[in-house]
Lab assay of single mutants.
Amino acid sequence: WKVTVKGVEYTFDNPEEAKKFAEELAKKKGGQIHYKDGEFQVH
């Protein structure tokens, strides 16, 4: 499971962890999460 933040990729074994990480980042940066092709992208 991948989380991509401004072109930087983070990989997680667990989808729950990936989702949590993406949500935290989106909150911090005031961005939005897009889920696409099996990965979370924070913009």
Rank of each mutant, 00 (worst) to 15 (best):
residue 18 A to W: 02
residue 27 K to P: 03
residue 41 Q to C: 08
residue 23 E to Y: 09
residue 32 Q to N: 09
residue 5 V to W: 15
residue 30 G to R: 05
residue 9 E to D: 06
residue 28 K to P: 05
residue 8 V to E: 14
residue 35 Y to E: 08
residue 36 K to I: 13
residue 1 W to C: 04
residue 33 I to Y: 06
residue 30 G to P: 05
residue 8 V to L: 12
residue 8 V to P: 00
residue 35 Y to R: 01
residue 42 V to L: 08
residue 9 E to W: 06
residue 43 H to V: 15
residue 29 K to Q: 15
residue 43 H to A: 09
residue 12 F to W: 01
residue 7 G to E: 09
residue 30 G to T: 02
residue 16 E to T: 11
residue 39 E to C: 03
residue 41 Q to V: 13
residue 6 K to G: 15
residue 16 E to A: 11
residue 15 P to Q: 14
residue 9 E to C: 10
residue 31 G to T: 06
residue 35 Y to A: 03
residue 9 E to I: 13
residue 19 K to C: 08
residue 15 P to L: 15
residue 23 E to M: 07
residue 19 K to Q: 12
residue 37 D to S: 02
residue 41 Q to L: 11
residue 27 K to H: 13
residue 16 E to S: 10
residue 36 K to L: 12
residue 26 A to P: 01
residue 27 K to T: 11
residue 24 E to D: 12
residue 6 K to F: 14
residue 30 G to L: 04
residue 13 D to F: 07
residue 18 A to G: 01
residue 20 K to C: 06
residue 11 T to V: 14
residue 34 H to W: 12
residue 40 F to H: 03
residue 30 G to Q: 06
residue 15 P to M: 15
residue 43 H to N: 10
residue 11 T to P: 09
residue 7 G to Y: 04
residue 21 F to C: 06
residue 16 E to R: 10
residue 32 Q to M: 11
residue 32 Q to Y: 15
residue 8 V to N: 10
residue 38 G to W: 07
residue 20 K to M: 10
residue 2 K to H: 06
residue 19 K to R: 14
residue 15 P to K: 15
residue 20 K to V: 09
residue 13 D to T: 11
residue 29 K to W: 15
residue 14 N to A: 07
residue 34 H to M: 12
residue 43 H to R: 08
residue 20 K to P: 00
residue 3 V to Y: 01
residue 24 E to S: 08
residue 2 K to V: 08
residue 29 K to A: 15
residue 8 V to M: 13
residue 30 G to C: 08
residue 11 T to Q: 12
residue 9 E to N: 07
residue 1 W to V: 06
residue 42 V to Y: 05
residue 21 F to M: 04
residue 21 F to V: 02
residue 39 E to M: 07
residue 8 V to Y: 14
residue 1 W to P: 01
residue 8 V to Q: 13
residue 22 A to Y: 02
residue 38 G to V: 02
residue 19 K to E: 09
residue 11 T to F: 15
residue 23 E to F: 07
residue 18 A to L: 03
residue 30 G to A: 04
residue 42 V to S: 03
residue 42 V to W: 06
residue 33 I to D: 04
residue 26 A to S: 06
residue 20 K to T: 10
residue 1 W to A: 04
residue 25 L to W: 12
residue 30 G to F: 05
residue 28 K to V: 12
residue 21 F to A: 02
residue 6 K to I: 11
residue 31 G to Y: 14
residue 8 V to A: 13
residue 3 V to T: 01
residue 24 E to Y: 13
residue 19 K to L: 14
residue 42 V to C: 02
residue 32 Q to E: 11
residue 31 G to P: 04
residue 14 N to K: 09
residue 32 Q to L: 11
residue 27 K to G: 12
residue 22 A to H: 01
residue 21 F to Q: 01
residue 32 Q to H: 14
residue 14 N to Q: 06
residue 20 K to D: 08
residue 6 K to Q: 14
residue 6 K to C: 14
residue 17 E to N: 08
residue 34 H to I: 15
residue 12 F to V: 00
residue 27 K to Y: 13
residue 11 T to S: 11
residue 37 D to I: 01
residue 28 K to M: 12
residue 5 V to M: 15
residue 4 T to I: 13
residue 3 V to C: 02
residue 12 F to Y: 02
residue 34 H to N: 09
residue 16 E to P: 01
residue 36 K to V: 14
residue 2 K to N: 04
residue 11 T to D: 08
residue 29 K to I: 15
residue 40 F to L: 07
residue 26 A to E: 04
residue 10 Y to K: 02
residue 3 V to E: 01
residue 25 L to Q: 10
residue 19 K to Y: 14
residue 10 Y to G: 00
residue 23 E to K: 07
residue 26 A to R: 06
residue 34 H to E: 13
residue 34 H to T: 15
residue 21 F to K: 02
residue 40 F to Q: 03
residue 12 F to S: 00
residue 20 K to W: 08
residue 34 H to Q: 11
residue 31 G to C: 10
residue 21 F to L: 04
residue 7 G to S: 05
residue 41 Q to K: 09
residue 11 T to Y: 15
residue 22 A to K: 02
residue 39 E to L: 06
residue 24 E to T: 09
residue 32 Q to I: 14
residue 31 G to H: 07
residue 3 V to G: 00
residue 30 G to K: 07
residue 17 E to M: 08
residue 37 D to K: 03
residue 6 K to P: 10
residue 14 N to F: 07
residue 27 K to N: 13
residue 22 A to M: 04
residue 2 K to G: 02
residue 41 Q to S: 10
residue 5 V to R: 02
residue 38 G to K: 11
residue 36 K to C: 06
residue 28 K to T: 11
residue 16 E to Q: 12
residue 12 F to L: 00
residue 22 A to Q: 02
residue 14 N to E: 07
residue 41 Q to E: 11
residue 32 Q to C: 11
residue 9 E to Q: 12
residue 42 V to D: 03
residue 5 V to F: 15
residue 28 K to L: 14
residue 41 Q to D: 05
residue 2 K to S: 06
residue 22 A to E: 02
residue 12 F to I: 00
residue 13 D to E: 09
residue 29 K to M: 15
residue 25 L to I: 13
residue 25 L to T: 08
residue 28 K to D: 14
residue 38 G to Y: 12
residue 2 K to R: 11
residue 42 V to P: 03
residue 13 D to W: 08
residue 23 E to S: 05
residue 39 E to S: 07
residue 8 V to D: 10
residue 7 G to K: 02
residue 10 Y to F: 11
residue 40 F to V: 05
residue 36 K to Q: 12
residue 17 E to R: 07
residue 3 V to H: 01
residue 1 W to Y: 10
residue 12 F to N: 00
residue 29 K to R: 07
residue 41 Q to A: 11
residue 19 K to A: 09
residue 26 A to C: 09
residue 29 K to D: 15
residue 36 K to M: 12
residue 9 E to F: 09
residue 11 T to G: 06
residue 29 K to C: 13
residue 21 F to Y: 07
residue 1 W to S: 04
residue 36 K to A: 13
residue 7 G to P: 02
residue 38 G to I: 03
residue 43 H to E: 11
residue 11 T to W: 15
residue 31 G to W: 15
residue 27 K to E: 13
residue 28 K to F: 11
residue 37 D to W: 01
residue 19 K to M: 12
residue 41 Q to F: 11
residue 34 H to F: 14
residue 36 K to N: 10
residue 43 H to I: 15
residue 34 H to V: 14
residue 11 T to M: 14
residue 41 Q to H: 13
residue 20 K to A: 13
residue 18 A to V: 01
residue 23 E to A: 06
residue 5 V to D: 14
residue 43 H to T: 14
residue 33 I to N: 03
residue 33 I to H: 02
residue 7 G to F: 05
residue 42 V to F: 05
residue 4 T to E: 03
residue 42 V to M: 04
residue 26 A to N: 02
residue 42 V to R: 01
residue 22 A to D: 01
residue 3 V to I: 04
residue 7 G to R: 02
residue 7 G to H: 06
residue 13 D to C: 02
residue 27 K to W: 10
residue 17 E to D: 13
residue 15 P to Y: 15
residue 35 Y to T: 03
residue 32 Q to A: 10
residue 24 E to P: 00
residue 38 G to M: 08
residue 4 T to M: 07
residue 5 V to A: 11
residue 23 E to T: 08
residue 31 G to I: 05
residue 25 L to H: 07
residue 5 V to K: 01
residue 21 F to W: 08
residue 9 E to A: 11
residue 26 A to Y: 03
residue 32 Q to K: 11
residue 39 E to T: 10
residue 23 E to C: 10
residue 27 K to C: 07
residue 19 K to H: 10
residue 16 E to W: 13
residue 18 A to T: 00
residue 6 K to D: 15
residue 38 G to A: 05
residue 20 K to S: 11
residue 24 E to F: 11
residue 39 E to R: 05
residue 37 D to Y: 03
residue 36 K to D: 06
residue 39 E to P: 03
residue 4 T to P: 00
residue 25 L to V: 13
residue 30 G to M: 02
residue 15 P to G: 11
residue 5 V to T: 09
residue 17 E to S: 11
residue 20 K to L: 11
residue 23 E to W: 06
residue 31 G to F: 12
residue 8 V to T: 11
residue 25 L to P: 00
residue 16 E to G: 09
residue 20 K to I: 11
residue 12 F to G: 00
residue 31 G to D: 07
residue 19 K to V: 08
residue 35 Y to D: 04
residue 6 K to A: 14
residue 13 D to M: 08
residue 22 A to V: 05
residue 32 Q to R: 06
residue 32 Q to P: 03
residue 24 E to Q: 10
residue 8 V to W: 12
residue 12 F to E: 00
residue 19 K to P: 00
residue 35 Y to N: 04
residue 36 K to R: 08
residue 23 E to H: 08
residue 21 F to D: 00
residue 29 K to F: 15
residue 11 T to R: 13
residue 35 Y to W: 07
residue 1 W to G: 02
residue 15 P to R: 15
residue 19 K to G: 06
residue 26 A to Q: 06
residue 3 V to F: 03
residue 32 Q to W: 15
residue 10 Y to T: 03
residue 14 N to G: 09
residue 6 K to M: 14
residue 8 V to R: 11
residue 36 K to W: 09
residue 16 E to D: 11
residue 35 Y to K: 02
residue 1 W to D: 01
residue 22 A to F: 04
residue 14 N to T: 13
residue 26 A to T: 07
residue 40 F to D: 03
residue 40 F to S: 02
residue 5 V to L: 12
residue 41 Q to M: 11
residue 3 V to N: 00
residue 19 K to W: 13
residue 2 K to D: 01
residue 34 H to G: 06
residue 23 E to N: 05
residue 15 P to S: 11
residue 4 T to C: 04
residue 6 K to V: 12
residue 37 D to L: 01
residue 26 A to I: 14
residue 36 K to S: 12
residue 18 A to I: 01
residue 26 A to V: 15
residue 40 F to R: 01
residue 40 F to G: 03
residue 5 V to S: 13
residue 36 K to G: 08
residue 10 Y to R: 02
residue 16 E to L: 11
residue 21 F to R: 01
residue 33 I to K: 02
residue 28 K to G: 09
residue 25 L to A: 07
residue 25 L to M: 13
residue 3 V to R: 00
residue 30 G to S: 03
residue 3 V to S: 00
residue 4 T to S: 10
residue 4 T to K: 07
residue 31 G to V: 08
residue 15 P to V: 15
residue 13 D to V: 08
residue 31 G to L: 10
residue 39 E to N: 11
residue 24 E to A: 11
residue 12 F to R: 00
residue 10 Y to S: 01
residue 17 E to Y: 06
residue 25 L to S: 06
residue 11 T to E: 11
residue 5 V to P: 00
residue 29 K to S: 15
residue 9 E to M: 11
residue 13 D to K: 09
residue 26 A to L: 08
residue 36 K to P: 04
residue 31 G to M: 12
residue 2 K to W: 06
residue 8 V to K: 13
residue 29 K to L: 15
residue 8 V to H: 13
residue 39 E to Y: 06
